[in-house]
């Protein structure tokens, strides 16, 4: 009861094509996350699903029925916005119940749903306050509560955590994960935070310039990126890209290796460089090597490690973890 299908969706604002043909199937109960750089059309795509924006072409199906002429309130969706978007003149209770009131649900039923949602999100103490009297985290919980109350087939989140501070972000992220488990509802979630994407998603959709680059589970994207863009976008610190001509490694244009798959050895290895900068993160140490024409390479080492700045070290790549890309930037998959 909450599947979503996008079929060749396009969207232009005047001359500018923002979404250039997106096809996607989301199963019932799935948690799908859209990631991509700023301005790639994530929010636009979400607004098209919600019906807040008309697509220039293609069709949106929710639960198997085409919804292009259905207004947002009748699509069985609920949306949580980055800026909370609570009604400033209404109390928390009224904020949560407005949608059901508009849909003419009986009062007892509304009260029951508000009760359920406020218990789930521990909002009971605040029900009679106005949004201005709440902290940022509480406001976002109210916004999530407002979505839960509607019992939607499909939850849409547009960067719901990006206005919260780091600690609150982790808490609210756990809350959303719990919500998904308990409600079993389908969720589509936009973020540009990798950690959110990797930890919450059943599947991640990587968007770039209005097109889907790759769709897959977090581990598929990490272990088997389809192209340079996805390889560089997923993982932090970013994957190192080295022109293959600087290495003696066969028939590719570009070689990619993640910082965590490089070890530093006294001699030999794949490439040598000068230590140019070291970042100590406690659990890890990031070492940046200046490898001349091959560019700057980052190696992520476990634990606390020390190197002399400007000393020369040798980097050894984990052979099973080396990615190879062709002239078009597509991954060359090992034929094993």
């Amino acid at each position: 009861m909450g599947s979503l299908a996008l079929k060749n969706i396009t969207k232009s604002f005047g001359q500018v094509d923002v979404i250039k043909g997106v096809d996607l199937q989301v199963q019932d109960g799935e948690f799908v996350i859209f990631v991509g750089p700023s301005g790639c059309g994530k929010s636009t795509l979400l607004r098209i699903i919600a019906g807040l924006e008309d697509a220039s072409g293609g069709s949106v199906e929710i639960d198997g029925s085409e919804v292009s002429s259905t207004p947002p309130s009748k699509r069985g969706i609920a949306m949580v916005f980055q800026t909370y978007a609570l009604y400033p003149h209404l109390t928390v209770r009224d904020n949560m119940s407005l949608g059901l009131k508009q849909a003419k649900h009986p009062a007892a039923h509304i009260a029951e749903r508000v009760d359920f949602a406020s218990k789930m999100l521990s909002l009971e103490p605040y029900l009679d306050r106005r949004p201005a009297e709440l902290s940022g985290g509480q406001r976002q919980r109210v916004a999530i509560g407002r979505a839960v109350v509607r019992k939607p087939k499909l939850f849409l989140f547009d960067e719901p955590l990006s206005n919260l501070d780091a600690a609150l972000r982790v808490n609210t992220r756990l809350e959303i994960a719990r919500l998904h488990r308990e409600l079993g509802a389908t969720m589509v979630y936009v973020t540009h935070d990798q950690t959110e994407a990797m930890t919450l998603a059943d599947r991640i959709v990587v968007l770039n310039g209005g097109k889907i680059e790759q769709v897959g589970t977090p581990m598929e994207l990490y272990n088997d990126p389809a192209n340079l863009f996805v390889a560089g976008f997923i993982g932090s610190p970013q994957m190192n890209f080295i022109e293959a001509s600087h290495l003696s490694r066969g028939d590719a244009r570009t070689i990619g290796i993640r910082p965590e798959h490089i070890s530093l050895v006294p001699s030999g290895g794949d490439i040598s460089g000068r230590v140019s900068h070291i970042e100590h993160l406690g659990a890890d140490t990031n070492v940046y090597l200046d490898c001349g024409a091959a560019g700057l390479i980052c190696a992520r080492l476990f634990g606390e490690q020390n190197f002399e700045i400007d000393s020369t070290v040798h980097a050894k790549f984990d052979d099973n973890r080396v990615f190879r890309f062709d002239d078009q930037g597509q991954a060359i998959r090992q034929t094993s």
């Binding site: 607004r47 919600a50 807040l52 207004p71 947002p72 309130s73 009748k74 969706i77 609920a78 949306m79 916005f81 980055q82 800026t83 909370y84 978007a85 609570l86 009604y87 003149h89 407005l98 949608g99 508009q102 849909a103 407002r146 509607r150 547009d158």
Partner: peptide
Amino acid sequence: SDDLKNAGRIDGLSEYRIFFRL
């Protein structure tokens, strides 16, 4: 905020209600 107006639309408010109330 656009988000506020859009929240109203998702909750089923008419454009008139959005104008007058929000």
